[in-house]
Design a binder for these strands. Structure first.
Lengths: 293, 293
DNA sequence: TTAGCGTGTAAATATCCTGTGATCAACCCT
DNA sequence: AGGGTTGATCACAGGATATTTACACGCTAA
């Protein structure tokens, strides 16, 4: 009977664990020594490092698939604040650490208010900076507490976070790790989840424009779900928005379905809100008095 | 919220009604002046503050429903590290900030590695500390499910931002993504919205001169609204200005009387805003069988 | 190294949505 | 009233979005 100890734990979803916790980091700075030390320290930890001599565009940052970026505001001059704000607002999933020379309290407050995750004053130890970066990134990939995650049942499917697997009865769906993460994320929310949202939470960084990975994984998921539980629909497409999870038994095909073609209507109460897949259209005639009477 | 046919364990999904963005903070410290300043600053921002003179148990912290906790390791002595680790591992959803006196790099690294989100050295400005706390909390919240906007009711129409959809009773209007965005925008404001305003906020860029997209989408919206709720008017035209959303029951309706008691919504609106400026009589033609055929 | 697997990309197809242009109706001003 | 302007309606082509299939890459284990 799920004790439910804290609201703050709800919705916690594990990030990708398989890749280890490799850190993908970019540094925007001009101090070669600083960057050298940082690079060494990071590669010792198995992370990937990239140095930037000039501010990269948001799209370029996305393409780098970063977990974090370290910025020295000094190399950007007055426009640094704009850049900081732009990066923080456009890439909310990216950890942004400002690491720069002496500063006033007001400057630090401003930077943090703009969205920076931490402000470190140079000179600083590489070790400490990396810890701060990891602390910021860690919050993304926070793993749920295994003890609190109980198995959940959705239609004919049972999701077992402790086993990283889903089952239909006692038969495993044989989901891969990533497939399971997406399914787990979807089952954890009743709302429609936009692709970017899904991508950011599962992959850990921002989705590049035109990336179809989420679609493909949803397809694989649907395929396995359908194979294991043919009479139910689970993942529903919301055109132009994203996906939503809701177990719905496929309606038994009764008669007269094709008399008027499009008269099926979405019900909110029993079906779980939306008819789901874009099969049904509400047309004027659906509410024609003759039909509703 | 999705009354599941098969019971699942996610009963509390709608539960965490966070009080806006208010910060719930506990401080474990022994410096009265420090805590006083912090308390003042925080209450000025509308947050809630709680001071602890001794380490609270994990369960006690859970019961406080905190967003963040500030800890001065100095008041805990050597056992502080254990305590820090225990809190961080058991409550990964809680932002933990260490705020303590002078320390070595090794100590700071240790604290951060144990799971602290930030390490601030005293003395520090309350303003800066609060910014750091907010940065940590902000990052934590991002990994939670985005705040579920509450469903709103307008006349016979229910708007569900979490589903990107609107309903009449339990029937979906089957709005497209863009249609819903416009409806959502309109329902979010009582005043008249100019076309340019609507266009800019929905499309994201300025409306070209002579663009009739907004008109067309308003037409589609009206059509679906009328189909689902024939006896009400929702979107009103202000000639030469724009559109305004306001649910108004059509006066001269002859059909069966109000079966459900839901007719008290639009009363005060009528007096306030230039009643029915050119509210159209769309109903007769709308349901004319000759036209729908 | 090779085989196997999981992951993500590319391209083709299917589906649906959007916004234009034309036409007609409603409205405002003179 | 009447002319000119603004809004409403409609159909449809072009474009955007989703699904599906096939395959290349990289990682892991034998």
């Amino acid at each position: 009977m799920t004790p439910e100890p804290s609201d703050t734990l709800r919705g916690a979803v594990s990030g990708p664990q398989r890749n280890g916790n490799r850190l993908r980091l970019a540094v925007l700075d001009r101090d070669p020594g600083f960057m050298q030390v940082l690079s060494n320290r990071l590669s010792a930890l198995g992370g990937e490092y990239r140095s930037l001599s000039a501010p990269a565009s948001v799209d370029a940052l996305v393409a780098m698939r970063l977990n974090a970026v370290v910025i020295d505001l000094a190399v950007l001059g007055p426009s640094g604040w704009d850049y900081l704000e732009r990066v923080c607002t456009r890439l909310p999933g990216l950890a942004v650490i400002v690491c720069t020379g002496p500063s006033s309290v007001a400057q630090r407050v401003r930077g943090l208010r703009l969205g920076a995750d931490a402000w470190i004053t140079k000179p600083c130890h590489a070790e400490e900076l990396i810890c701060v970066i990891e602390a910021a990134v860690r919050r993304h990939r926070r793993t749920e507490m295994p003890a609190l995650e109980t198995a959940s049942r959705f239609g004919e499917i049972t999701v077992r976070p402790d086993l990283y697997q889903a089952y239909a009865g006692d038969m495993s769906l044989e989901l891969t790790a990533r497939e399971f993460e997406i399914l787990h994320l979807l089952t954890g929310s009743d709302r429609v989840l936009r692709r970017e949202e899904i991508y950011e939470r599962v992959w850990g960084y921002a989705m590049a424009h035109g990336d179809r990975s989420v679609d493909v994984f949803v397809r694989k998921l649907r395929q396995k779900l359908r194979a294991a539980s043919p009479d139910w629909s689970y993942i529903h497409t919301h055109f132009g928005v994203g996906y939503r999870f809701a177990p719905e038994p496929d309606a038994g095909r009764s008669a007269q379905a094709d008399t008027d073609g499009e008269v099926e209507v979405a019900r909110l109460d029993e079906a779980g809100v939306d008819p789901g897949v874009q099969t049904r259209r509400l047309r004027e005639r659906a509410l024609d008095p003759a039909l509703t009477a």
